[in-house]
Amino acid sequence: MKKFFALLLAVVMVLSLTACGGSGKTETAPAAETAPAAETAQASGTAETAEAEAWKPTKTINIYMTHGAGGDTDYMGRKLAEALEKVLGVSVVVTNVTGSNGATCMQQYKDGDTDGYTLIATNTAALTGNEATGMVDFGYTAFEPVAVYGMQSGENIVVPANSPYNTLDDLIEASKANPGTIRYGISTGGGVYIQACVLTNIGGAQFNIVDVGDGAARLNALLGDSVDATSLPYSTAAQYIEAGQLKSLCTCLSKAPDLLPDQRAASETIPELVIDTEYVVLAPKGTPANIVKALNDAILEATSTEEWKQMVNDYCLQNPFVLNVEDTIANLKEQRDLFQSFVPFL
C-alpha cells in the first residue's frame, strides 16, 4: 500500500517536473525567437522594401479555418491553399477549428505566432458580424489582414413561387398593411439577422420575425410553409428558383453576381441593405508587414490563373475578386463601419 502511494507520488513529481521544464521552455523559446525577428522585420519593412520582399516561407504554413469542412468558406480556403502551395513551394495545411460562427478559431489564433506560418481563413460576415452582434469584442483590427480573395454568390430574399409578392417593395408594403402576419424566417445573430434588422428598422417592414436556423433549415421552413419569406444563399435557392418553386425578390449583395447580372439588388429599395460576404485571410496581430505583403503577393499570383477563374465562376458565380493589402484593409473598414452603424438596433 505505502509503496504504491510512494510510486504514485514519484510519478506525479516526475510529471510535474517535466511539465515545469516543458512549459518553461515553450514559453520562453518562441518569445526569444520572435521578438528580435519582429523588430528587425518592422525596421526593414519601413526602411527598405527591397529587402522586405525577400521573405520566403521555408516550412509548412498552417491555415486555421474558422468554418467546418463542407461549407463554402472551407472549400475556398482549401482551394486557395492548393494554389498557394504551387506558388510558394511549401506545403500549406488547412485545419478546421470550428464553433460559434468562427469566433472560437479567431479568438484562439488572433494572438498566435507572428512568423507568417500561422494564418486564419474566414469570411467577412463572420469577422464583422460577430463584432456587430456583440458575440466577440474584437474585429478585423485585432488581426493583420492579408487578403480578401473572393466574393460569395450572396444571399437572396426569396418567397414561394405562388406568393403574391414580386419585389422587395411589395413584401414590405404588404407587411405594413397587415403588421405581424407575414412570417419572415431568420437565423438570429448571423448576417441574416442583421439583414432582417435593417429591413425592420430602416425599411420599416413589420414582419413576424421567426428564428428558423441555418440556410438549409430556412429552405425547409419555406418549403414546409412555416415561413412566408426568408433569405437564402443563392447556391441553396438556385435549383428551386429554376424549378419554379421559389421566387427571388432580390440579392443582398451590393450588385448582382457577375454571372447572374439580371438580378435586382436589395440596395435599390433600402440603400443600407448591403451584405457582401467575402472570403478573407488574416494573420495574427503583430505579423510583420513584409511577411503580410509577401503572402498577399503570393495570393495575388496564385489566384491569377485560368484554373482559379474557372473554379470561382463555377462555385461562386463570380469573377475572381482578390485585393492587395491596402484595399483589403479599406474594404474591411468599410464593411465594419456599415455593420457598426446597425449596432443600435441589433
Partner: peptide
C-alpha cells in the same frame, strides 16, 4: 451536412432538380 458539402463541391446540387440535372 458534410456529404452535402461534398456534393456541392462536385457541382451536384441536391434539390428538386437533382434527378434531371
Amino acid at each position: 451536412a458534410m456529404l452535402l458539402g461534398g456534393l456541392q463541391i462536385h457541382n451536384v446540387a441536391p434539390g428538386p432538380l437533382i434527378y434531371q440535372k
